[in-house]
Write a protein that binds this DNA or RNA. Structure first.
Length: 538
RNA sequence: GCGCUCGUAGCUCAGCUGGAUAGAGCACUGGUUUGCGGUACCAGCGGUCACAUGUUCGAAUCAUGUCGGGCGCACCA
């Protein structure tokens, strides 16, 4: 819709203009301040220019009026245009707001270490990534959701040690002295017990079998992670194991050296990458003195593999605490001979918690983490998804745990679901058949109805904008606003039993379509009726 | 110290490719249809958009600086 208008303006005015939505609908559907910027070039007053421009739109069918007000150019779309678009949307529900972009995108997100369950901080990146994924799919992109499994290195050894410690204390009832770093948490219980069943009790005490234990256990942990993601309606297409990459290391190193003989060098018995020359603060070690590769080495091989697989664009979603890591990986990508502009790294900021007004420190190793699965159990996946998707992902978010447990109207997801349910209910109450409703013409609508229809038809722009700007919160913001328009309309305007019943119901069907489509892009299923909330348990 | 990032209503957050009177939810106060789900609607209260300077016809938005918060500055992942 906006594209249509935008294209038309470009044609008529011979230049690209900024199109915006006026704050006040009485100004029209779209507006542009173009006359202000032209004023300087033409040495004319903005108002005069706007008036002249307005008159050049006299004969366009898609506008009923084009007016100049105080230098702004305000456009009002014709009822014909809007109603035809609405009718098309209802008949082609699956295509509504969708597009046919062909680009291939690789989206890597979550990628939490397989050493413990996902906590609330991971949930934010997970929701953000999955929402982007759904938006991209809907826009027609060929997008792959990938999880990078860090199943190598110290942390895996630590996992083995942690299970042994847990088992010795809780199964063998030994007194255990805990070292400084190890993992804790309920999930170890299941792992330790299963390990004993599978390998016998010796697995807990034999230090030489720590690694074996860990390599077995990480698959169990991954299963826990994948399950909790699935409970939140998040799915991955591919998983790549860090451990599978290292045998490719020599070839990748040679590849970098072939592109730039200074890329890789040896110093102090270690192997370095000359990342400083590509914008990093320092050069970085990639192979330690004892021959073990660093984490960066794994990421270099991984990114090489990504680029060799051949996508048009790569998106990584990382926790904000990794932001210093971006220049290194970009440097490596360039040494590998690829365009680092194709690699876009988005940061998902920290979630800081308050508990009863006091900061609540989570530490994976202290075992006092708030798990994603706990929150899903408390408030449901829909509410979790909505809350996280509603916040701009690149700003730190703070919330009180007790607030988070609330399950009332302060949670906007209920507000939107209720709007959808209201529409479904009223349609089922009506004596009119769906056929009769669909046959109605969306003509001669009053100001409120016209405005509601316009709002509902904005979804396509929102979807595209939310994805292109990577600002997924634009979608929930829009849905909240649309739900508010619906509730207001519902309150103001009687529908059943009026002579406009068919046409108004058809209008509501358009609104429901937008709500449903928008929610599904957030991984939430629209409800046809609301069950009464039972609040007594809190 | 250096880098990144944020600072908007009592609270949680939108708005930031510069444009019309700075928005929403929560909280608080008051009100609402013999009409379809009151899980709704309306009104009120509440702001020096951290501060300063600059660019501009126009700045919450851009630039520079100051102050304050978060994160990072590993041969850990």
């Amino acid at each position: 819709m906006k594209q249509r208008v935008s294209a038309l303006l470009r044609e008529t005015l011979g230049r690209t203009v900024v199109l915006e939505k006026p704050k006040d609908r009485s100004f029209g559907h779209f507006a542009t301040p173009i006359a202000f910027s032209l004023a300087k070039e033409l040495r004319e007053s903005p108002m005069k220019i706007a008036e002249e421009l307005a008159s050049s739109f006299d004969n366009h069918e898609i506008f009923t009026s084009v007016e100049s007000v105080k230098g702004y150019l305000n456009f009002r779309l014709s009822e014909n245009f809007l109603s035809e678009y609405a009718a098309w949307a209802l008949e082609n529900q699956d295509e509504f707001a969708s597009q046919e972009k062909k680009e291939k995108i690789l989206l890597e997100f979550v990628s939490a270490n397989p050493t413990g369950p996902l906590h609330i901080g991971h949930a934010r990146g997970a929701v953000y990534g999955d929402t982007l994924y759904r938006l991209a799919k809907h826009l027609g992109y060929d997008i792959t959701a990938e999880y990078y499994v860090n199943d190598a290195g110290n942390q895996i050894d630590l996992l083995g040690l942690s299970i042994q410690l847990y088992g010795r204390e809780n199964i063998l009832k030994e007194n255990v002295e805990y070292p400084e770093s190890y993992y804790r948490g309920e999930y170890l219980d299941g792992l330790a017990n299963t390990a004993v069943e599978k390998f016998g009790k010796e697995i807990l005490t034999d230090e030489s079998r720590q690694k074996e234990l860990a390599l077995w256990a990480k698959d169990g942990v991954m299963q826990i992670i994948v399950d909790s993601l699935a409970d939140t309606n998040i799915h991955f297409d591919t998983f790549v194991n860090e451990s599978s990459l290292y045998n490719d290391w020599d070839r990748v190193m040679a590849k970098m050296a072939a592109n730039d003989k200074n890329a890789i060098y040896k110093k102090d018995g270690k192997v370095w990458i000359a990342s400083e020359a590509k914008g990093d603060d320092n050069d970085r070690v990639v192979v330690r003195e004892d021959g073990r590769p660093t984490y960066l080495a794994g990421d270099i091989v991984y990114h090489n593999q990504k680029f060799e697989r051949g996508y048009d664009h790569y998106i990584n979603i990382w926790g904000a605490d990794h932001h210093g890591y971006i220049p290194r990986v970009n440097a490596a990508v360039e040494y590998l001979g690829y365009d680092s502009n194709k690699l876009e790294t988005l940061l998902s900021q920290m979630v800081s918690l308050l508990k009863d007004g006091e900061p609540y420190k989570m530490s994976k190793r202290a075992g006092n983490v708030i798990l994603m699965s706990d929150i899903v159990e408390e408030i449901g996946a829909d509410a979790l998804r909505f809350i996280f998707a509603s916040k701009k992902s690149d700003t730190a978010l703070e919330f009180d745990l007790s607030e988070f447990k609330k399950q009332d109207s302060s949670n906007p997801i209920f507000y939107i679901q209720y709007a959808h349910a209201r529409i479904k209910t009223i349609i089922s109450k009506s004596d009119l058949s769906e056929k009769e409703i669909m046959a109605a013409k969306l003509k001669n609508l009053d100001e409120n109805a016209d405005s509601l229809m316009f709002d509902a038809l904005l979804l396509p722009e929102i979807v595209e904008d939310a994805f292109n700007s990577r600002q997924v919160q634009k979608l929930p913001d829009y849905l909240k606003a649309l739900a508010a328009s619906l509730h207001k309309f519902y309150y103001d305007c009687r529908i059943i039993g009026t002579e406009d019943e068919a046409k108004l119901l058809k209008l509501l069907m358009v609104v429901a379509l937008s709500l449903r489509t928008g929610l599904s892009l957030m991984g939430i299923t629209a409800k046809d009726y609301m069950t009464k909330e039972v609040d007594s348990e809190n």
